[in-house]
């Protein structure tokens, strides 16, 4: 596995994020299912990242990922990274309710696409994606398929 340049990097992260969503919420989730899946992934990853990087480090990465995702999906503009361990992303449900299933799913997945890209950028693939593969180990095999 390797990410030789940002493009390949992004494609793999996007694919990884998409597979994660399909795994958690099915092929065509309704916005409410998307919100639940995003919140669930966010809470688990934040807890794992906090253990290694501290709450400040984990939050900084999530805030940045959310910022980048919002640029692609302005509907996320009102969403923030919260401090409550039981609510990682505040106002997410409100932001995506009333949107099409596809729009909502794409916005949710974009947050993790950018989080994965940031993690790989800073920590490399082996360490950066470790928290993800800890919870969803089958996705590691998925990355190898993406990379060919």
């Amino acid at each position: 596995m390797s990410y030789p340049e940002p493009t390949a990097h992004g494609i793999a992260a996007r694919e990884l994020s998409a597979r994660l969503f399909v795994h958690l919420a099915g092929e065509s989730p309704v916005p409410a299912s998307t919100a639940a899946a995003v919140e669930s992934v966010c809470q688990r990853l934040r807890a794992e990242l906090t253990a290694t990087l501290g709450s400040g480090g984990a939050s900084a990465l999530l805030v940045r990922a959310l910022h980048l995702a919002t640029r692609e999906h302005p509907l996320l503009a009102g969403v923030t990274v919260g401090n409550d361990p039981h609510e990682c992303l505040t106002a997410l449900s409100e932001a995506i309710s009333g949107r099409s299933d596809q729009e909502a799913a794409a916005a949710g997945a974009a947050i993790f696409t950018h989080l994965f890209i940031l993690l790989v950028t800073f920590l490399g693939e082996d360490l950066g994606l470790q928290p993800l593969f800890k919870f969803w180990p089958h996705l590691a095999r998925g990355v190898e398929e993406i990379e060919g």
Partner: peptide, 22 residues
Amino acid sequence: EPAIKMLRYQQQYGFFDPKKVG
């Protein structure tokens, strides 16, 4: 030193084995 920076830089050294991490 923030952990994210420490991990980022330390893994550049030959002795750092990412497979042992975690």
